[in-house]
């Protein structure tokens, strides 16, 4: 099921740049984080919950960093998502965010931001992790 020869396919376009996966159930917060990361030059893919995040990780683009809210509706939250990412995609960096201190639920991570946070600080942290 290849694309037309010589054409740039979307998957290739995504792989050509560092992709950040943002998992956040509040649409306006997801929008703010995603747009500031795009403004900083990253390709951003968006998930509205942990289930969507796992679908994207299993079936699509090459993601370098997952930025996830911890409190999200659905069968798994951000801490559980972080544990799955660590186990199945150990090369991917994980940044967790929460409105509560010490809410990482014991999940390993590469950064924790207490909400509300300055997205510029998140961008700086991501640069340190992958650039």
């Amino acid at each position: 099921m290849g694309g037309v020869r010589g054409e740039l396919r979307p998957a290739d376009a995504v792989k050509a740049r560092s992709a950040i996966l943002v998992a956040e159930d509040e649409v306006l917060i997801r929008l703010e984080i995603a747009e500031q990361l795009r403004g900083a030059g990253y390709t951003v893919i968006e998930a509205a919950n942990a289930h969507e995040a796992l679908e994207l990780l299993h079936h699509s683009a090459e993601v370098k960093v997952v930025v996830s809210d911890i409190q999200m509706p659905g069968s798994i939250d951000g801490a559980a998502l972080a544990r799955v990412v660590r186990a199945e995609f150990p090369a991917i960096k994980i940044i967790l965010a929460s409105g509560h201190f010490a809410a990482a639920g014991g999940a390993e991570h590469d950064g924790f931001f207490r909400k509300p946070f300055d997205v510029a600080e998140l961008v700086k942290h991501i640069r340190k992790l992958i650039d």
């Binding site: 694309g3 037309v4 979307p10």
Partner: peptide, 11 residues
């Protein structure tokens, strides 16, 4: 247009 829409459909 950056690539053909058919490529999006295939993807």
């Amino acid at each position: 247009k950056p690539y053909e829409a058919q490529a999006v459909h295939d993807n």
